[in-house]
Structure formats: C-alpha cells, structure tokens
Nucleic acid binder design. Sequence first.
DNA 1: TCTTTTGTATCATAATTCGGAACATAGTTT
DNA 2: AAACTATGTTCCGAATTATGATACAAAAGA
Lengths: 276, 276
Amino acid sequence: MTQSDDQRLGVKSVHLAFEVLEAVAFEPGEIGVSELANKLQTTKGTVFRHLQTLVDRGYLIQNASTQRYRVGARAYLIGRAAAERVDIIAGSQDAMRSLRDETGETVVVSSLSNRGNIVMNTLIGKSPLEIGVRVGSVLEPHATAQGKAVLAFDTQGLIKQLRRRGLTGLTPHTVTDIDVLERQLEAVRAQGYATAAEEMLLGISALAAPVMDGSGKTAGSIAIVGSIQNIGRQPAPEQIEAVLRAAQRVSWNLGYVGHLPFEPRNGRVPAKKSAG
Amino acid sequence: MTQSDDQRLGVKSVHLAFEVLEAVAFEPGEIGVSELANKLQTTKGTVFRHLQTLVDRGYLIQNASTQRYRVGARAYLIGRAAAERVDIIAGSQDAMRSLRDETGETVVVSSLSNRGNIVMNTLIGKSPLEIGVRVGSVLEPHATAQGKAVLAFDTQGLIKQLRRRGLTGLTPHTVTDIDVLERQLEAVRAQGYATAAEEMLLGISALAAPVMDGSGKTAGSIAIVGSIQNIGRQPAPEQIEAVLRAAQRVSWNLGYVGHLPFEPRNGRVPAKKSAG
DNA sequence: TCTTTTGTATCATAATTCGGAACATAGTTT
DNA sequence: AAACTATGTTCCGAATTATGATACAAAAGA
C-alpha cells in the first residue's frame, strides 16, 4: 500500500484510474463500486466512471450477474508484451550509469541463467587504466563478488552443486573451504552485499549486490569492479550504499515489489534529478 | 467524426494514457515523445505528461541514455495478476498442451470480450514450418474457425452487428454471404465445432470449438491452426475429437457443468442451469 | 412489505488537462 | 567549429473536463 505519497507527478485522473485498475487486479475475487470507493477514499460516481473507462478498454470486465468487477483480458496482454521486453539488461541501463558516475568504477551486470552467472552488460569506469569484464563470460560462483551475491540468495541449490565440485583456487585469496564460504554467505545475507578482494585476480576487487526479479527470485547481480586500491577489502560506505541503491533500482525495474534484504529504505528510487 | 470509435465512454485523459501505454508496450523497441505525439495525433507536451504519469507508476521506464521509453515491470505485474484471474488463460494451459501433443498442430485459445474475439494464448505446433497467430490479435468473426465457433453460440447479438457491417472477403474462400454463414453456423451448432479452410489466408486452415464458462455463456474458443495439408476442409475425426475434448476440458475448468453440444449420443443440449 | 444497499445517471462547479510556444541539449551537417 | 535540426522538457493561460453531491433504479435483506 502506498503511503501518503500524494505528490505524484503526471495526470491526476490517470493516477486514480490506475489505482482502480490495480485495486481490482490484485483483488482475489470480484469487487464492487462502493467497496472500491471506500477503499480509495473517493466517491462512487468517480470510481464508476473510471471503471467504465477500464471496462471499455477491456482491462476490466464486469460480471453481468453480480455487477461486480474483475480484471480483464487486455491487462493480461499488456503484461505479456511487457514480459518480452522487461529484462535485466533493459532494466539496468539507468542504474548502471548512475552507479558508474557515483563511484567512478567499472559497473558489471550479470544475469543468473541455467548456464551460470553470466556477464550481461558492462560500463567501463573512469580510471585511466581501464578495467573491464568480457560480456558473456561466466562468473565463478565462489571467487567473485557477483557469484557470492547470487549464491547467498540462491533458491535453486547452486551451493550443493558447488559442494560436489569443490572450490578451485584462483589466487592465494580465493576461498577454497566451503564452510568458510558458507559463513561468508551468511554475512552477505545479513548485509545485502558481497565482496571479493583479489579472489579471482590479484589486484582486482569487486563489490556486488543481488538483483531480484518480479517473482522474487534472484535474477542476477550488479557490481562495481576495480583495483584493490579503489575498492578495499572493506569497501567504503558510499560505495556500498551506491551499489545497494543500484541493485534496488534494477530489482524494482524487473518488477520486484519488496525491498532487498537490507536497509529499510523508504519508497522507491526516484528517477528524477535536479530539483532546483 | 466517426461516432463508433471516437466516442469512447469514461474518462478522456485516461483513455489517452492507455493509448500511450499501449503504443509503447506494443512497440518492438523503444519510442520517443515526438514519435508518439505524431502517432497519437496530439502534442508533445500532452504525451510527455502522460509518459511522466506512467513512468512514475512503473508501467513504463525511460532509458536514461536514449531518453526514450519502453514498457516497464508494473505492466508485467498487472498481467501476471490477470493471468491468474482471467479464467480462460489459467484454465486452458493443460488442455492446450494435450491438444498440441495429440494433433501436432499449433493451438490457439481466444477469449470473447467487448473488444472482439481476441487471441490470448498460443502453443506452436510441431511442424518444421512454424505457423503461429499473434497474441492479442482480433479474430475475424466470419473468416476464422474461432469466430464461427463463438458466433454459433452467440448470445449477445454479434450476428446482427455482422449483418450491418457486412462480410469482408479476405481470400477467395471467405464466406461473404451472411445467409451462407448462418447456414454454416447451424452446422456448427449441430456438430459442436467450426472449420475455416483458407478463409483468412490461403494455405492455412483451422478447426475450432467453443468454450463455455460457469454461467453457460460462450467465453471463447480453442482451436488448432495449420497448413491446409494437415487440417483438411473436412478435418480428420481424430482432430475433431481432440479439439472437442480440449474444449470440454477447458469449459469444465471454467465451471461449466454440462456437456458441450456435440455429443451425438444424447441429443440433450445443455441448458443454462443456474443455481444461484 | 418496507428498508437498506448496491450500481447507475445527471449536472453545476471548479479544478484539471490541454496545447502552443519557449527552452535545453544532443546529434548532424555545413 | 558553428549553424542547424532534431529531440525531450518546462511553462502558462484558456476552457475543456473530471469531480462529487444528489437523485434514481433495482436488487438483497429483514
């Protein structure tokens, strides 16, 4: 439920129309005009007219016998169109840029698929010495911040696979003991972010947060990657916050309705900029 | 102007907002303010304000780098909610798969709404040459098997509308004489299924049966669509039986208590038995 | 039967949306 | 580089248009 966030921008009556649509759509059964008017704190007449609009467009249908309303076919069609186009790449564009500008580091977005945790998009940082990750490469689950971020919120039993296969050491800093890793994942769950300093390549460090999709599952991660000089073993609070904010924003773009398992930040992330 | 399409009922600005939403949602890529204003025959300012509303609500998202718009996650969420509540979609999933496996043909489920007989879900057949129907497209009442299937058991006077408007010929095989059509509908009522061989597109044929809902009304149709080579002018008995069985199953899922009017054994046409 | 509650229609008022023009900025051409 | 064109964005007056109180119709309950 939306708080007293009355200062929405745009067209007022359209907002109300969507309030009506959403109220009906998320109602388990059917709902009537009076009940809606009550719920939305407005009058029957107004609600009725909006219902009329929505029925006319096919977003809602009215049960002829009960005269009450429920969600209609057109809403489904819009959703289908959206499903084809909403993905982690599209949904992370803005957040990537913001994160890069805020931190100056290279930003890496990965998507968790059945082929592993794959780098989907990158944005090179501002340091003169460019540090990048090849798009399409598979991120080691145990030796990268991105890997740990998704492992920590894993629902598909990725850890068991890892336990069977064992942890390959890539640098002297790579975690090769699964129990140590599990303890690290505990911390990731608590903090909402994961780090990996020189665990994949000496001198390179990363800070990642998981990204959730519309069904609440882990979709991938967003991370900054840079020199150990810039992203320390214990990253700066600003860096952590920036990454977490970006992850929240991408998750929201993917339809994630809740808050990521960290920081009770209020409201959604504004896409607006200058206010003066 | 034309009173049929221009004079929509309800709230005007909301209609425009949905025009914007739909235009963006059904756009393959991204789309900008100017292009939209042009397409919708209005001004940039107005379109911009509606875009603002929709972005604020999460139905659209703006690509920060290109500044253009695409459909957002909230639209997806509404669609998901709809999918669970629009009965014919939820209720046809299993039957679609069975029908596809039994016949090998593309399966198409349509829903009858005030916007017409609309394709809601499809399952591509097994032939190497894929034949599909775009989800969301409107099925011609007189030139498709699906259209005839619902027309035959129509209760809302769709035929009168058709009689007024006349029948457009789409191929040499399209029925353009309303009396011929009425006679075909008689047969559909007797048999319980409808066919349309090359009536919409040369080479393509379809076999459809109506789907009834809990109140005994026609809710839509389920059909197989394929090459005229596979679905003949007089379809094979196995195909007919498979389609009828699927329709019965979906109807049953929608709460339909009787039998569809095809069973040759008992000539009893199911009466609309409402117990409430 | 009467009462209550529901969905729907009507209408005056005022708040709202609209659209044109001006602005800013990015991309392209000269 | 500068001029030019395209885009997205902001602003503001005018009047269209959404609003909610009231009234009506038709069920559902008592």
